[in-house]
Computed example of a mutant assay.
Amino acid sequence: MQAVILAAGEGKRVRPLTWSRPKAMISVANRPIIAYTIDALVKNGIRDIIVVVGYRKEQVTRFLNQLDLPIEVVVQEKQLGTAHALQQAESRIKGDFLLLPGDNYIDALSIAKIKDIKNAVLIKEHPSPSNFGVVTLRDGRVDSIVEKPDHAPSFLVSTGIYSLNKDFFRYVRGNDITDAISCMIEAGTDINAVTADDWQDAIYPWDLLKLNLRLLKHLPAMREGTSSSHATIHGPVYIGKGTTIGPNTVISGPVIIGNDCTIGPNCCIQPDTSIGSRVTIEPLSLIGNAIVMDDTTISSHSRIVDSVIGERCTLADHTSTETVGGILEIEGIPTRSEFGAIIGDHVKSGSFARFKNCIVGNNVTLEGNRDVCSRIIPDSSLVI
């Protein structure tokens, strides 16, 4: 069986983190999201994989070329929708195939449940169904899929994972997969519904924290770096090569720390934290339930919790994030949120900066002693 992974889109609702990378390449638990999709396929013996790339395609292609798999890359030159992306791979598809989004997490067991069922969609209940294609069922089969309705008729949603055959392309009329599935149903084709075991999509950037928590549950404990004899490390903790953990630093797993990092002394790394490579955490800082990407420095006496920090950021001493609820306008829609901060790439903050339920764009500079609450700061801003 073949698999087609769609990884051409940007992921606009996850900005500013998709400014410099497609959503499928956002690092969660120190691996791109698409890597987990590929893992699930390989565990099911599926190695004939086609990946459709588009937005910042070079990043996806470079990552795929590092894998020991015969993955074929197809380019969608203009991002015109999911069905259009799939059509770019039509000439390479031989028969039955799985269709998967490259920016969602899916487990191997769910793939095993659907891969041998003809004309099927993987479904799952979701508390916010209006962000997805909402599914209604009749006698265990799909009666309808309505894409992002204002008033969802059920909590069942399509995961965007389908088992199809090449006849599917006869039903493609527009640019969306959901429309083609609806045409199949109208033509009398049965679409089977299969319930996923473990699936998650990060709709908004703060959803990456939930995905990070989920993925860290499977973290193997391994220590390739150097830890002070006076550091305390317990629980599943992965420490990469060249990383040093200073004295009196306490790390409580699950935590993953990449290569060539400097942590401490006298730091506290709390559970559900992913720290990339070449990251510096200066003394007397606390990090918890957070994603800190590569080449970032968090200076002394800082407290970063419930937050995602992009690449190559420099947060000055006494920087803090605080989790509060609020409403942010995402893609023109007021959206409830509750987290500390989402900080893009190349952000610099001054001493005693405080972030509460806010999104900070890329290349932003904040002068010291700023308090930012329930706001979105655009790219390249100077906050004084």
Score class of each variant (00 low, 15 high):
Glu311Gly: 07
Val121Gln: 13
Ala152Lys: 02
Asn44Ala: 11
Thr314Leu: 15
Glu329Ser: 12
Gly350Trp: 03
Ile281Tyr: 05
Lys12Ile: 15
Gly95His: 12
Asp107Thr: 05
Asn104Cys: 15
Glu90Ile: 06
Ile281Phe: 06
Ala108Glu: 15
Ile384Gln: 15
Asn363Ala: 06
Trp199Met: 04
Asp295Arg: 12
Lys43Gly: 02
Glu224Pro: 00
Lys12Phe: 13
Val308His: 07
Leu211Pro: 04
Val135Tyr: 04
Ala112Cys: 00
Ser228Val: 07
Lys241Asp: 07
Asp371Phe: 11
Arg15Ser: 05
Ser277Pro: 13
Leu99Arg: 13
Thr323Cys: 02
Glu322Leu: 07
Leu137Met: 13
Gly240Cys: 09
Asn165Glu: 11
Ile239Pro: 08
Ser307Cys: 09
Glu125Gln: 11
Leu211Trp: 00
Val157Arg: 13
Thr262Val: 14
Arg312Gln: 08
Pro334Asn: 06
Leu67Gln: 03
Ile330Ala: 03
Asp68Glu: 09
Asp294Arg: 03
Glu10Ser: 03
Lys210Ala: 05
Thr136Asn: 10
Ala83Asn: 10
Cys261Ala: 10
Lys43Gln: 14
Ile377Tyr: 00
Glu367Gln: 09
Tyr162Ile: 01
Arg354Cys: 15
Ile185Leu: 12
Val237Lys: 12
Asp107Ala: 05
Val146Lys: 12
Phe63Lys: 12
Thr18Glu: 12
Val292Phe: 04
Tyr238Val: 01
Leu98Arg: 09
Asp272Glu: 10
Val146Asp: 03
Val308Glu: 12
Thr189Trp: 13
Met1Gly: 04
Gly235Pro: 03
Asp116Lys: 13
Val4Ala: 04
Val255His: 12
Leu99Ile: 08
Lys217Glu: 14
Ile34Ala: 08
Thr189Gly: 00
Ala196Asp: 04
Leu156Arg: 06
Asp294Pro: 09
Ile233Thr: 13
Asn363Phe: 11
His230Tyr: 15
Ile333Phe: 02
Ser110Ile: 05
Phe169Asn: 07
Ile263Cys: 05
Gln87Thr: 10
Arg354Ser: 10
Val157Met: 06
Asp317Tyr: 00
Asp68Gln: 09
Tyr55Ile: 02
Leu219Arg: 13
Arg21Tyr: 09
Ile376Phe: 05
Ala341Ile: 06
Gln200Arg: 11
Ile327Asp: 02
Asp198Leu: 13
Leu286Arg: 14
Ala3Glu: 08
His318Thr: 14
Arg47Tyr: 01
Ala7Gln: 09
Glu224Thr: 02
Ile309Phe: 05
Ser381Gly: 03
Gly140Thr: 10
Ile342Cys: 04
Glu77Pro: 08
Ser320Cys: 12
Val157Phe: 00
Ile34His: 06
His84Met: 08
Lys12Cys: 06
Asp176Tyr: 14
Ser27Lys: 14
Gly258Leu: 11
Pro236Tyr: 01
Thr244Val: 14
Thr365Pro: 00
Arg223Met: 10
Thr319Ala: 09
Pro205Ser: 06
Val194His: 04
Cys268Lys: 13
Asn363Arg: 15
Cys358His: 01
Thr37His: 00
Ile309Thr: 03
Val279Arg: 13
Lys23Cys: 08
Arg303Lys: 15
